[in-house]
Nucleic acid binder design. Structure first.
Length: 216
DNA sequence: AGCGGGATTAGC
DNA sequence: CTAATCCCGCTT
């Protein structure tokens, strides 16, 4: 008899390597860049949904004044000060949740914000940090959990993006120079980004796509 | 106890 | 450009 796994539209775990603490403990900018193109997987009630990470921002606290951890350890930000490879989830503007991956060893409060996801199986529209968490039903219940299956984890399925573009981070103007200008937003050019890239990069991305499509 | 603001989004 | 919406962190 066929086992009932994979039936009823539950979906299956994507093939690949699950990224653990040894991946996230490294230099935050390096981790952010390498996360581009990896799969974010959400498991809930036996259901598996996932999408590909296409936009991430590094927050290098405590020195980085745009990072929550720059104001010291508080109940809200305590997870950022903890061990790597954990989810830091917080509520923003009273209505949206933002998902971060904690990086660096315990005591170094750095993290990577997930800003956009190219939707995969079971994932609807999700163009922005507050919308992708809604699409994957991620909220503060998941704050502080280790990134491991289940219920939330990252998979390297072997895909390597052709290009990764860096720009300044979004919505941190208040932190002032140089923090507001550091190019710590990492994007895989294409649709699904939370915001458009600088015009020069859009043109480049368009050319790359045309070349990939081929002439005619 | 009160107050101001925010790593966002949708709508005018 | 602005309202929505509420938790958090700091001041009183």
């Amino acid at each position: 008899m066929a086992p009932d796994a994979g039936d009823r539209g539950l979906g299956e775990r994507p093939a690949g390597r699950v990224l653990g603490p040894e991946f996230f403990v490294r230099d935050t900018l390096e981790v952010a860049r390498e996360l581009c193109g990896k799969l974010l997987v959400r498991e809930q009630d036996g259901q598996v949904r996932y999408g590909r990470l296409v936009e991430l921002e590094a927050y290098l606290g405590p020195d980085d004044l745009a990072a929550h951890s720059s104001r010291g350890r508080t109940p809200r930000t305590s997870v950022m000060f903890g061990p790597p490879g954990h989810a830091y989830v917080y509520l923003i503007y009273g209505q949206y949740h933002c998902l971060n991956f904690v990086t660096r060893p315990e005591g170094q409060p750095q993290a990577i914000l997930v800003r956009a996801l190219e939707p995969g199986p079971g994932v609807g529209r999700c163009g922005g940090p507050g919308l992708l968490t809604r699409a994957l039903d991620i909220d503060r219940r998941l704050n502080g959990i280790p990134l491991a299956p289940p219920p939330l984890y990252v998979v390297d399925d072997g895909f390597r993006p052709e290009r990764v573009v860096q720009t300044p981070r979004v919505g941190v103007e208040y932190s002032g120079v140089p923090w507001a200008e550091e190019p710590w937003r990492f994007c895989v050019p294409g649709l699904f980004l939370s915001r458009r890239l600088p015009a020069s990069e859009e043109v480049r991305a368009h050319r790359v796509q045309q070349r990939a499509r081929g002439p005619r």
